[in-house]
Design a protein around this nucleic acid. Structure first.
Lengths: 117, 117, 117, 117
DNA sequence: GTGGTCTAGACCACC
DNA sequence: GTGGTCTAGACCACG
């Protein structure tokens, strides 16, 4: 599982892991029903304390993104569309806030859109 | 000086102050050369420890947005245009990242722009 | 870490610490990636308040000389060459200013260079 | 009297005035026996508190660079050569320290002298 | 009164 | 244990 952790940033590691898993899910790299690494395994590959992985998995389970079946392993949930839509709404909201900010700095919509890729 | 602090948020107080001053400067509410409240004064009006204000002012000074003249007070720098341009560049960069993220989630440019205000 | 502090001088303690760490880095006593003492530890060995060490470390971090990783410790940055070159440029600049000053006092280049070691 | 003061620097104003007068004396812009501005006059032209000028003049008098004859005014001393030689020795000492520092950073004498103007 | 420095000590999240 | 934040309060030089 391709997860990037940035040590030395303010956002805690467990939160970064949550975000990374969400990212992989919404981009459909991880698909519904698919099994993800065990806590101990991921802890090793990321060089991170198992407690930290546990915390991240707990949060992901509370968000209905993963489900852990004891002794069997941990799996991606079936109801993924909601996660994806939430992500999209979040991004749209962020962009709209930034656009508002730019306009309040005196830029016109045309000027802004010219700068966007 | 109209500064709103949200206690009980993860972003530290001193950082909120930095952002608020930057906001007031980029929106030209605070103008070059203008004197801003003394450390003690702002500490009182915000009900915050003077050391916290000092830290915020230190960061703003490191960013060349204000200058502290001992025994005289603290003032907005003359070269403010850079601060404003930096802010704009930051925002544009953030938006472009979010747009890229949205496209990688399968949305077309048309779909995205329809949702923007 | 061999740091000498001169209490009872006009230059503040935190600044002396910054200079000492820079010195150790430019002289490659401290090497990229190396861990330096924790805030509390250095505070104890120098008999100085942790807040003072923190301030020094903050400045060094702003200068890209060290990075603080929460719960892990504080480390020397990888891009040290810049720090070293900055130091050299600083010194050259200082010397050139002093040379100019000496010439303006009526000394010829020959007279000056005779006095240098 | 051409004196430049940099407000907003760590070195106190009275000290800057002392240094400036010394500079003018060693460069023989101000000559032995010459009268310099009264405290009140200089205070006005520099927009500085008279107490500050007083403090600077006191120090300059203690250093035997000026002498104030009450009701007559303040004058440059006759024994100026010492002031000049002190200044030169100071500068040479500073340069030698910086040269040593540069060598300890691994630069050879040739490399250093190539960079000097 | 202004900014600048420093101490002592507390609390927090994270691991 | 680590770094990060914050408070309370003291002292200083300067003007």
């Amino acid at each position: 599982m391709l997860i990037n952790i940035d040590f030395g940033t303010r956002t805690p590691i467990y939160e970064q892991i949550v975000l990374e898993v969400e990212r992989l899910v919404t981009k459909e790299v991880l698909k519904p029903g698919e099994q993800i690494p065990s806590i101990r395994e991921l802890a090793l590959t990321l060089s991170v304390n198992p407690n930290t992985i546990k915390k991240a998995y707990d949060i992901l389970e509370a968000k209905n993104i993963i489900v852990s079946k004891s002794t069997k392993g941990t799996f991606i949930t079936d109801n993924i569309k909601k996660a994806k839509n939430d992500k999209i709404d979040d991004l749209i909201k962020k962009i709209n806030q930034d656009l508002k900010e730019l306009e309040s700095l005196g830029l016109s919509k045309e000027e802004i859109f010219k700068k966007l890729k």
